[in-house]
Write a protein that binds this DNA or RNA. Structure first.
Length: 465
RNA sequence: GGGCGCGUAGCUCAAUGGUAGAGCAGUGGCCUUUUAAGCCAUUGGUUGAGGGUUCGAGCCCCUCCGCGCUCACCA
């Protein structure tokens, strides 16, 4: 097409011939001539069928056998139709693939240059169950996944260019860890051993720091056997990196740069519209101290309530609803989830977390109850989580044991003691900053989708029938 | 798991308890510059499944299945 336009500009008159292929998206036949739009991943073009060039026989064949959705190859020369659209005048064509089953066809109307689609496939169940049909008829859905892929490419490019090495660690793990979540359990027949699908990459990536890789990252799937929601999917894509000789403050800065870089690469702008609000990813992000943030939001200074009982008491006095009997850290987690998270529309780092909900993070100097940890929030949604990693094997072992005591023996969210991880750390692990981000959620923000299923190609659904 | 809502033709949607419809797609016909092509004709339904109430149920009631929203859950 470009060659044709160039030739037109230069006043060239030699016909440009071409062979093009794609899927038939519209057919308009009128006796001895007709038009059809043919679409492939690169766009669409109009085929012009005329009995003058094709002859009666081929014209009849087309009429008889071609339907919407079929894949066609056409050979001919490029021209402009009377209405100015570049079209391929066919001298021959071939059926490449037949659509036995009709696509849930949508019709496009171009009004003032804007494509208006009529009666498009819209039922979410059908769209997810038959994503292939959704993609085939809804170009904007294809665009979501192009953006998603471009996003992952950009994140990779950023980390590669900062000398991070991409690695792959086990998905099937004998002991799960690195997060507090219920795992999926599977079984290896020959080993006669139950295995868990990983809930995070963390413990394996940090083993690599012990091994001498100073900057590692992994992009892959985590599995958590928990409820689904607009921002939770049982399997989701996570990016984690670990950075030796860095702390959480340096990780914050790198995070800002990485997201801004992805914006530039993928969107060409650092301002996105999400849920009707403009979100500005330009660094620096807003930074909120967790303790101060809670004081401002609800007037509770967690420092003044050093144990669960006293904190529960003041929360009750404020008329807050919560599950009683939780550990102090869980109560604080509840507070920030309830009163802070939804208010963080613009990119915000919430930092300095209570120690007892952060068993892998390094304690803050001068305050043994707090750790050097931050979470990033955007659009009222938790996006990433990071901390200065705990690298003292004895402290780490104590934390695991502490965590174990907080849970009942049958609680699957219990973080089991990973002795090999402790052993690795005992060889010496460099101080480092670690980081994890929910790639699906970032894709939601980049594509202005408010359901994680819209950015996952094949979201899980119950079996039908 | 709880609450609310939805499920009608391939797709998008109508139908006070009284013979299930439209547009597009499909099929047949006309048409040599269309682009939601047009015109004429026409096919298409176990109204998610099962039960109940009623002379009569797409509509009312119950059970089940699926989906959505929401709450709970969730580093």
């Amino acid at each position: 097409m470009k060659a044709f336009e160039d030739a037109e500009k230069n006043g060239a008159t030699d016909p440009i011939s071409a062979t093009l292929a794609g899927r038939l998206r519209s057919i308009r036949l009128m006796g001895k001539l007709g038009f059809a739009h043919v679409e492939d991943a690169s766009g669409r073009i109009q085929f012009f069928l005329r009995v003058n060039e094709l002859g009666e026989e081929k014209m009849t064949f087309f009429k008889e056998y071609f339907d919407l959705g079929d894949f066609i190859q056409g050979t001919g020369t490029l021209t402009r139709s009377r209405t100015g659209e570049i079209s391929l005048i066919l001298t021959d064509f071939a059926m490449l693939a037949k659509a036995i089953s009709p696509l849930p066809a949508a019709k496009d109307e171009v009004v003032d240059g804007v494509v208006v689609r009529h009666a498009t496939l819209a039922d979410p169940e059908t769209r997810y169950r038959q994503r292939y049909a959704d993609l085939a008829v809804n170009p904007e859905v294809r665009q979501i996944f192009r953006t998603r892929t471009a996003l992952i490419t950009a994140l990779r490019k950023f980390l590669d260019s900062h000398d991070f090495m991409e690695v792959e660690t086990p998905i099937l793990q004998p002991i799960y860890g690195g997060a507090a979540a219920r795992p999926f359990i599977t079984h290896h027949n020959q080993l006669k051993q139950d295995l868990y699908l990983r809930i995070s990459f963390e413990l394996y990536l940090k083993r690599l720091l012990v091994g001498g890789f100073d900057r590692v990252y992994e992009i892959g799937r985590d599995f958590r056997n928990e409820g689904v929601s607009y921002k939770h999917n049982p399997e989701f894509t996570q990016l984690e990196f670990y950075w030796a000789y860095a702390d959480y403050l340096k990780v914050m800065e790198l995070t800002e740069q990485m997201i801004a870089f992805a914006c530039d690469q993928v969107l060409g702008t650092r301002k996105v519209t999400y849920n009707g609000q403009e979100i500005d990813f330009n660094p620096p992000w807003k930074r909120v101290d967790l303790r101060q943030g809670l004081i401002n939001a609800i007037g509770i200074d967690i420092q003044a309530y050093p144990d669960a009982a006293s904190l529960e008491k003041v929360m009750l006095e404020k008329g807050m609803k919560f599950k009683p009997g939780e550990a102090r850290g869980k109560l604080i987690d509840h507070l920030l989830g309830e009163y802070l998270e939804p208010t963080f529309i613009q990119p915000t780092f919430l930092y300095d977390y209570p120690r007892d909900i952060s068993p892998l993070a390094k304690t803050k100097p001068g305050d043994p109850t707090m750790v050097e940890r931050f979470e990033g929030f955007v659009g009222g949604m938790e996006l990433c989580n990071a901390f200065t990693e705990l690298n003292d094997p004895q402290d780490q072992e104590n934390r695991f044991l502490e965590m174990g005591r907080q849970f009942k023996a049958d609680d699957e969210e219990n973080m089991p003691l990973d002795e090999d991880y402790i052993h690795a750390m005992a060889y010496g692990m460099p101080p480092c900053g670690g980081f994890g981000i929910g790639v699906d959620r970032l894709a939601m923000l980049f594509t202005d989708n408010h359901s994680i299923r819209e950015v996952i190609l094949f979201p899980p659904l119950r079996e039908s029938e």
